[in-house]
Design a protein around this nucleic acid. Structure first.
Length: 573
DNA sequence: GCCGTTTTCGGCCCGACTGTTTTCAGTCG
C-alpha cells in the first residue's frame, strides 16, 4: 500500500510550504488531505483505479491529480520543486523532536541554520537562545534530539527493512536467473532496528557475475563498499520506502554451501564465534558443507537454534544443557487484545475486524478504543464506552465462532489516575492501560504512574510500556525491573506491542519479564484490519525474549484468560 | 486547495495540554 507514502509527501509539502512562508490556508489544506488519506482503510491505488477518490470529502481535483501523478511516476513534482527550493538539510531538521516548521523558518531566516550541524553550532555558541521562544531548556532538549537522530542514522525498523529487501529481491529476480532468494541477516533474526539488509541467493555458479551486476546496478544503489566473487556490500536508498541510506549485502550460494552461508548470515558474529570455538574444541570444521542448518548444529552436538535466538548470549550454553526455550510461534496466538475500532481512531468497521480475526483462527479479540482524554484520537466518553459495550455484546451473537471482548485502552494520567472510574472499568472484559501524555517526565514520575495503574484491580495489561517510537522518540525513563516486579506481583500483563515502529517492550526487557515470571501479551494495537497482520513482528520480539507460549496471556485459551482477569479482581478488591 | 454556493470568491484552521515564555509552537494517535 502506497497510502502512507502519499500521506507523508502531503505532510512534507505542508511543512516545506510553511517554512517558505506560503499561504497558511493552503498549508492547512495539505495537512488535512494527509489526514484524509490516513483515515482510508483501502488501498489508495485501488480507489484511484475505480474512480472512487472523488467520493472522499476533502479530496479535490488538484489532490487527486497529485495522487495519480504519484501512482504513475512514483513522485509528485510540487514536492520535488519545494525540496529543490530549500537547502536539503532542512528535511533533517524536521525530524528533530521539539522542532516544528515555524521554528525552522525562524532559525533559517534569522540565523541561516539549515542543517543539523548548523543547529548544533547555534546551540553550542548560544546564538539560538537569543531568538524569541528559545530558552535554555529548549536548547538542551534540541541538543538531545539531534543526538538521538545522529545515533539512529542509517537504521530502519524491520518492516521498512523487509520492504527494502523485497525491492532488491524483485529487481534481482527480474534481471537474472536465481533459484531462490532468502532474506537473511538482521531481518531473519527479527531485530527491531536494522542497519544492513542481507540477502542470500541460491543459483548456479556461472550466473554469479550476472547476479552481482544486477545487484550493484539496482536503482537506489549509492556506493560499492566491498566486492568479491560471492559477496557484495553496497550502500542503498529508496526514497519511497525510507529517506535513510542503509547498507545492503548480497551473499551468493550454490546448492552445496547454501546451509552454511545461510547460517553464517542469519546469526550475530558473536554466535558464529561461539560456534567456531565449539567446533575447534571438537576438531570439527564449521565450514564443511552441510545439507541443512540443522545438520551443522547436529555436528556440534547441539539442537537446532532458531535465527531469532542466535544473539551471541547464552543460547549455546542453554542448548547444551537442553534448556533452550521452545519459543512462541505465530500459530500459538489465540487472540489479539489491543484493537481500535472506528469508535475512536480505527479505520476498519468492527465486523470486518472480527472477520479478519476469524480468518486468522483466533478464539477471541478485544476491542480496546481510546478513552476520552485522547481527544485527538476521538477517545470515548464513559457514556459512549457503555454504548460500545452493548454493541460488542450483541455482535457476539452474530459471530459464535469467536469471542469478542469489550475492552478499552484507558489513558494513564501523570498522577497514575485512570481516565475512567472503576465502576466503568468493572463492566469490561479486558482493560489495557497506556501512557499517551506527558512523555517528557522525570524517571521517578514515569515509574510512579505505571506502578499505580497496575495497582488498579481492573487493569489487565500495560500497553506499549515505554512509549518509545523506534528511531523517533526515546523511551520513558523507567526502572524496568521495578515495573516487571509490580506486573508479576499484581497479575498484570506487560504488552509486547507488535507495531514495527514500537516493539515495546523490546526483546531484552521481555526477557527480564520472562525471567521474573511476569505475564506478557503480544498485541498489534491495530488501527485497521491490515494491522492485525503485524502480529508476526511481536512474535519475533517475543522469541528474542526467550518467551514460550506459557509466558504469553493471549496464547492461552479463553477460559484461562478469563481466570487471569478474575484472579486479579478477586485478589485486589 | 477545497467547499459551497450569493456560480466567482470568501471562509476555512483536529483540540487539549505542556512547557517555555509572557503569547505560542510542538505534541499526542
Amino acid at each position: 500500500m502506497i497510502n502512507s507514502r502519499i500521506e507523508q509527501i502531503f505532510n512534507q509539502i505542508a511543512d516545506l510550504m510553511e517554512i517558505l512562508g506560503q499561504d497558511s490556508f493552503v498549508v492547512n489544506h495539505y495537512r488535512k488531505t494527509a489526514r484524509t488519506i490516513h483515515r482510508i482503510d483501502a488501498d489508495i491505488e485501488q480507489l484511484a483505479m475505480f474512480g472512487q477518490l472523488k467520493d472522499l470529502n476533502g479530496l479535490g481535483k488538484a489532490s487527486i491529480e497529485k495522487i495519480f501523478e504519484f501512482i504513475d511516476t512514483g513522485k509528485i513534482q510540487k514536492h520535488q520543486d519545494l525540496i529543490a527550493e530549500i537547502p536539503f538539510g532542512i528535511l533533517d531538521l524536521l525530524k528533530v523532536r521539539g522542532l516544528g516548521p515555524k521554528s525552522i523558518k525562524l532559525i533559517y531566516e534569522k540565523l541561516n541554520v539549515y542543517n543539523l550541524m548548523g543547529l548544533k553550532n547555534a546551540i553550542a555558541d548560544g546564538t539560538l537562545m537569543r531568538l524569541p521562544g528559545f530558552g535554555k531548556t529548549k536548547a538542551q532538549n534540541l541538543a538531545k534530539g539531534i543526538k538521538f537522530i545522529v545515533a539512529t542514522q542509517g537504521q530502519l525498523v524491520i518492516s521498512k527493512a523487509i520492504e527494502m529487501s523485497n525491492y532488491i529481491a524483485d529487481h534481482l529476480e527480474s534481471q537474472t536467473t536465481i533459484e531462490k532468494i532468502i532474506p537473511a541477516g538482521q531481518i531473519r533474526q527479527g531485530c527491531d532496528s536494522i542497519d544492513t539488509v542481507s540477502i542470500v541467493t541460491l543459483a548456479n555458479q556461472q550466473d554469479f557475475p550476472k547476479i552481482i551486476q544486477a545487484f550493484i546496478t539496482c536503482p537506489g544503489t549509492r556506493e560499492i563498499i566491498s566486492q568479491s566473487p560471492a559477496d557484495v556490500e553496497i550502500t542503498f536508498a529508496n526514497e519511497n520506502i525510507s529517506s535513510k541510506i542503509i547498507k545492503a549485502q548480497l551473499h551468493l550460494a550454490t546448492a552445496d554451501n547454501l546451509a552454511n552461508i545461510e547460517l553464517i548470515n542469519s546469526s550475530t558474529p558473536e554466535h558464529i564465534n561461539q560456534l567456531r570455538q565449539l567446533a575447534k574444541q571438537n576438531n570439527i570444521d564449521l565450514d564443511q558443507n552441510a545439507q541443512t542448518q540443522q545438520q551443522i548444529y547436529q555436528r556440534l552436538n547441539l539442537p537446532y537454534i532458531e535465527p531469532s535466538l542466535r544473539q551471541g548470549g547464552n543460547e549455546i550454553e542453554l542448548a547444551q544443557k537442553g534448556k533452550l526455550p521452545k519459543v512462541v510461534q505465530l500459530a500459538d496466538i489465540k487472540g489479539d487484545l489491543h484493537i481500535h475500532s472506528p469508535a475512536s481512531d480505527g479505520r476498519t468497521p468492527i465486523e470486518q475486524l472480527v472477520e479478519t480475526a476469524i480468518e486468522r483462527n483466533y478464539q477471541y479479540i478485544a476491542i480496546t478504543d481510546h478513552s476520552h482524554s485522547s481527544t485527538i484520537a476521538n477517545g470515548l466518553s464513559a457514556e459512549r464506552l457503555l454504548g460500545n459495550i452493548e454493541i460488542v455484546r450483541k455482535l457476539n451473537q452474530k459471530y459464535p465462532e469467536i469471542a469478542i471482548l469489550a475492552g478499552t485502552e484507558v489513558d494513564i494520567h501523570i498522577d497514575g489516575r485512570l481516565d475512567y472510574p472503576d465502576e466503568i472499568l468493572a463492566q469490561l472484559d479486558f482493560v489495557v492501560a497506556s501512557v499517551h501524555m506527558t512523555l517528557d517526565c522525570k524517571p521517578s514520575q514515569a515509574n510512579k504512574h505505571l506502578l499505580k495503574a497496575m495497582e488498579n484491580p481492573y487493569v489487565n495489561c500495560i500497553g506499549h510500556p515505554t512509549t518509545r517510537i523506534i528511531h523517533a522518540r526515546p523511551p520513558l525513563p523507567l526502572d524496568i525491573d521495578r515495573i516487571i516486579k509490580q506486573a508479576a506481583e499484581t497479575g498484570t500483563a506487560l504488552e509486547i506491542n507488535s507495531n514495527p515502529f514500537r516493539l515495546d517492550l523490546k526483546a531484552s526487557h521481555g526477557r527480564l519479564a520472562v525471567e521474573a515470571g511476569a505475564m506478557l501479551a503480544i498485541n498489534t494495537d491495530a488501527h485497521s484490519k491490515a494491522n492485525l497482520h503485524l502480529m508476526k513482528f511481536g512474535i519475533l520480539t517475543a522469541q528474542r525474549a526467550h518467551a514460550t507460549s506459557a509466558n504469553i496471556i493471549n496464547c492461552q485459551p479463553l477460559e484461562t484468560l478469563k481466570k487471569f482477569v478474575q484472579a486479579k479482581r478477586d485478589r485486589m478488591i
